[in-house]
Design a protein around this nucleic acid. Structure first.
Lengths: 161, 161
DNA sequence: CTACACATGTAGCAATCGCTACAGAGGAGA
DNA sequence: TCTCCTCTGTAGCGATTGCTACATGTGTAG
């Protein structure tokens, strides 16, 4: 049951953002009570961390499912990614990452750890998908920056290959 | 008086983040009451927007003060910026931008407008500071991405010139 | 002096927050 | 059967949330 609840937490956080993630609404979305969330996860922070960890697990899988397999040169991979990101399908994921990264920047150690996990998973996936894996850091930086500027309503160029 | 309050709002938001920006704490920091904040700014959203607008005005000035004047090639400007950003002096500013951009990504029109203003000001400043102003977009994207990854505790490369 | 807009303090509202105490249900082992 | 242990529902706590009603200043124009 805890596992189902964790899924529901992940879905809720993705849908509404960290800022709106309070116990009762999350519990209701999970079909249970705030009482149970606290029982399973200790406290709100534990529940949030569990939900974010689940998001981290699922994020890369979702992206992977949308791309043909195998490593490619950046000049091929990045335009594919651009199409996917421009569609808005991952806006919620990016928004969550931005919220978590902002907390990390403010010194929240737990959130920084979660952010690190999400970003590292994405970077590793990117490196595995590139025929030039040494460019993963640079391209990841470009993608995240593009996401920020997208949230700002700016048409920044997507990082090219 | 409203102007002083706006300054205090900006300082508070920078220091504690959007997530912690509730009326009473902000008012206390401004040396007034929640009653007065609502009186001057209409409601909480108005106060937040006013504070963020003030942050947008001041952000670029603060950066400008730390650099020698005049446009430079990216290969000179970016290492200077890197030193400043690595110092952490602008972590709070970046964190606020990430929070606002996340709300923008979620469709909050007012926050997207504020985010747009902040990002556009920064981009314009960057373009004016570069001997290759056409690279402003790309470098801005790189800097924002670097900020995200810094919040994730990742040592991403700062965009080079 | 009067009138009237601007400004401010006190008090309180209903709603929501994270969290907890308590009681019970249900199954597993002695 | 008795006794734990895991799980769950109800109810409520004190604190904080955004916001408002009401009374009272404090100026300035007529």
């Amino acid at each position: 049951m805890k596992d189902k609840h964790t899924d529901a937490l992940a879905v809720f956080i993705l849908a509404h953002g960290l800022a709106a993630a309070s116990l009762r609404p999350m519990a209701k979305a999970a079909g249970t009570s705030d009482r149970m969330i606290v029982y399973h996860f200790g406290d709100k922070a534990g529940a949030i961390e569990a939900g974010l960890a689940r998001i981290a697990e699922r994020g890369v899988e979702a992206l992977e499912a949308l791309l043909p397999p195998g490593p490619r040169p950046a000049t091929e991979l990045m335009p594919m990614l651009e199409g996917i990101m421009q569609s808005g399908a991952f806006d919620a994921s990016v928004a969550v990452l931005l919220e978590v990264a902002a907390l990390g920047l403010r010194g929240d150690a737990a959130m920084r750890a979660v952010a690190n996990r999400i970003a590292t998973d994405f970077r590793d996936w990117l490196a595995a998908r590139l025929t030039e894996p040494e460019r993963a850091d640079e391209l990841l930086r470009g993608i995240e920056g593009w996401g920020v500027l997208r949230g700002c309503g700016l048409d920044a160029p997507f990082p090219t290959g």
